[in-house]
């Protein structure tokens, strides 16, 4: 196939050798499984969040702080933030992997995403804890 025009193969490696180590083969089912675990956890957490938001929407800040001071509410609030952001990170990671094709830009985007999501998660957890302990 020396004179082929158009698509042709010039690499002296097997097709399997070319794709080995790419894509999901690096990490196995971890990403997929965590996405499922977090979505299952988010089913009750989302319902609780909508209920809590409706309940809190008419209350002043002091009453909201008092509500968050209840250990069960505080725990669910922190769980909501942690699980939401874990799920969100896994989802946005796939969006970047699917649409950003340039290796360099993709890697930088993934690193920035991880940094920003990690930081916002910490801010959310600390704000929830501060609120819970302020009552």
């Amino acid at each position: 196939m020396s004179q082929t025009s158009g698509p042709h193969l010039r690499v002296m490696r097997s097709q399997l050798g070319l794709v080995r180590g790419l894509g999901a083969s690096k990490s196995g089912t971890e990403h997929w499984w965590m996405e499922r675990l977090t979505s299952v956890a988010l089913v009750p957490l989302t319902l609780w969040f909508v209920y809590a938001t409706l309940h809190l929407s008419r209350l002043p800040r002091a009453a909201v702080a008092h509500w968050a001071g209840n250990p069960i509410n505080a725990a669910l609030l922190v769980a909501l933030v942690l699980v939401t952001f874990r799920h969100l990170l896994l989802g946005l990671q796939v969006v970047i992997e699917d649409y950003v094709h340039v290796e360099r830009t993709r890697t930088i985007s993934l690193v920035v995403l991880r940094g920003v999501v990690g930081l916002v998660t910490l801010i959310g957890v600390l704000a929830a804890l501060k609120l819970a302990f302020s009552a």
Partner: peptide
């Protein structure tokens, strides 16, 4: 879109705290 909504949730927590 919900990722942006999650930011609003954190804003709400910051404001409340």
């Amino acid at each position: 879109a919900l990722s942006v909504g999650a930011l609003l949730l954190v804003c709400w927590l910051i404001a409340a705290a």
